[in-house]
């Protein structure tokens, strides 16, 4: 483990923006639920924000390279958990998205988002050249594709679609070639058209 980061090492601007977004969220929840049967939900949001903040500071003291080293294991755990959800998950509102962990209902696809970011980051650091060749692009696509299909089967289109920009931004920063990008945008547009405007 590296030396503990000092206060100067934190990106205070980033934290300030984060804090502002969180505050806005709490305000919105308060305003939307005021006087209704869900009144008081903003307090719940605050409590979890506090938990999240503490976790954030703890995790910031861990060298992220250590986490990156575990990316293969994390990825396998993630896939296993997504399969487990499909096999023995609890159905709510007609979808199987939750498995009980220590008495709490746990939504695995939320964890999957985080792990995919770590795995993609790790994968793209291995690309040495400035240009991402087609083989690596397809490999990255497969890495994201497997959990994406599993999440789609739950079904949870919302979370599944979040994975696509992760891949896109990651690939872009890793040197996605313009012709590949154009091809992806074209195919994507055609897919969207086929799905939402058939005929």
């Amino acid at each position: 483990m590296r030396d503990a980061p000092g206060t100067r090492d934190y990106d205070w601007w980033l934290l300030a923006i984060l804090a502002a977004i969180c505050a806005l969220g709490v305000l919105e929840i308060y305003s939307a639920t005021h006087g209704s049967s869900l009144a008081g939900m903003h307090m719940k949001q605050l409590r979890w924000l506090a938990v999240g903040t503490i976790l954030m500071f703890i995790l910031s003291r861990v060298d992220y390279h250590l986490i990156m080293d575990q990316s293969l294991i994390l990825y396998l755990v993630c896939i296993a958990a997504l399969i487990a959800v499909l096999l023995l998950g609890n159905s709510r509102f007609g979808a199987k998205r939750w498995i009980p962990v220590m008495g709490q209902m746990f939504q695995v696809s939320e964890l999957a988002k985080l792990i995919i970011i770590i795995v993609l980051a790790r994968f793209f650091t291995e690309v040495r050249s400035d240009k991402l060749d087609l083989r690596d692009l397809i490999k990255a696509g497969l890495l994201v594709g497997v959990p994406l299909v599993l999440i789609l089967k739950q079904p949870d289109l919302g979370t599944a679609l979040v994975l696509v920009p992760l891949l896109f931004v990651g690939a872009f920063l890793a040197g996605l070639q313009w012709q590949h990008m154009a091809a992806i945008v074209l195919v994507g547009a055609m897919l969207v058209g086929a799905v939402f405007y058939p005929r």
Partner: peptide
């Protein structure tokens, strides 16, 4: 499985700016 991460500065600044 072992490899080095190399320099973090390897990130293409131009693309990072575009993404931002």
């Amino acid at each position: 499985m072992s490899f080095s991460f190399g320099s973090d500065n390897r990130l293409p600044q131009q693309r990072l700016a575009v993404a931002s």
